[in-house]
Design a protein around this nucleic acid. Structure first.
Lengths: 188, 188
DNA sequence: GTCTATAATAGGATAGAC
DNA sequence: GTCTATCCTATTATAGAC
């Protein structure tokens, strides 16, 4: 990482944004390099494995971001409703109110899917587990909680696609607004 | 089109499958050419505008497939439940039981999004309109019908992403199984 | 740790023979 | 209508100077 300029995390954040917008195949080293503000060769210094290394780092970074801003709030103290609200607020920031794609959602296509299948599955599973656990704590029966957690994750992913396709944030907004009832009180 | 070998529609079907799997940027002319069984130059004979032309043709082909297998059944005679069942059965085929991506969902990423924004929006809107209309006929109030139609479309897209990420068809299967109640009777 | 230079390859697209 | 040959650019990746 450029000693004073950007931390490694900041570098990866910028790489991640390019991958989210362009996908794995669509993200060229030229773009990645430009986004970071470093020459191509410098990027290879930090990511000897090239693009695949960079995308892998982005996935790990997303996991750690999710750990801090999504999973920890979900498991913190407070009512299930309050904890879920913090989770939803973090989602709204992560996805820029529905205007930025999900890294998982873009890497699931093309060659990157096989390349990162394990990580993709793990990230989705971890998220669903935490959501299901919250629902259980709110009094929802275990298998029903799991079903609802799956629905939450899938509706978020679908909302991002639809909002992107329509060029309209409102589906994403509506999904976020209904998540709490859906997971905890079940009315969609 | 190769006079005896493949019809233009068959050619476009094969191109579409490559775009669905690889995305716009990920689909190389070499792959597209191989999938069709024609040389690169022959492809340019049918699609002078190159890859963009091919993807545009795929989008049009999807629209016409949807018109025949999704929208027509939705508007046909019969109970709303029966019409929706035919729609769902067609979805299951289109997406190969959750194993193949949606062309709209893959073109929504990267440079292709701007390229095809108008078509993407139109395809999503047409589909939602038809679903909402069906719900209205089943006695659902207009604005509620629209809301449910949006949910149906977004849950399908999300299910494809999640099933892809988990490498597990069951989320897609569960979403299809719940569509009818969700749109017509509202219990998700 | 960053850069310039460069290699080697793949990608998109075209010309022209058959 | 299909093919071979070709062009040009972009792309990934590396070598080596500073």
């Amino acid at each position: 990482m450029p000693a004073p300029l950007l931390s490694r995390e900041q570098v990866i954040d910028r790489l991640m944004l390019v991958f989210r917008r362009q996908g794995f195949e669509g993200a060229s080293l030229a773009e990645l390099s430009k986004a970071v503000g470093l020459g191509r060769s410098s990027l290879y210094h930090y990511f000897p494995g090239g693009k695949e290394d960079m995308a892998r780092a982005a996935l790990e970074r997303l996991d750690s971001w999710a750990q801090e801003h999504l999973l920890t709030p979900l498991r913190a103290a407070g009512t299930p409703e309050a904890r879920l609200e913090r989770f939803i607020a973090a989602l709204d920031i992560l996805y820029a109110h529905g205007r930025e794609a999900c890294l998982l959602g873009t890497l699931v296509h093309g060659a990157s899917r096989l390349l990162f299948q394990k990580q993709l599955r793990a990230s989705f599973e971890t998220l669903m587990d935490a959501l299901a656990q919250l629902a259980v704590e709110a009094g929802v029966e275990t298998s029903e909680a799991r079903r609802r957690a799956e629905e939450v994750v899938l509706r978020i992913q679908g909302a991002l696609i639809l909002s992107g396709g329509l060029d309209d944030d409102s589906p994403f907004k509506r999904v976020l607004a209904s998540l709490s009832d859906q997971l905890l009180h079940s009315e969609v």
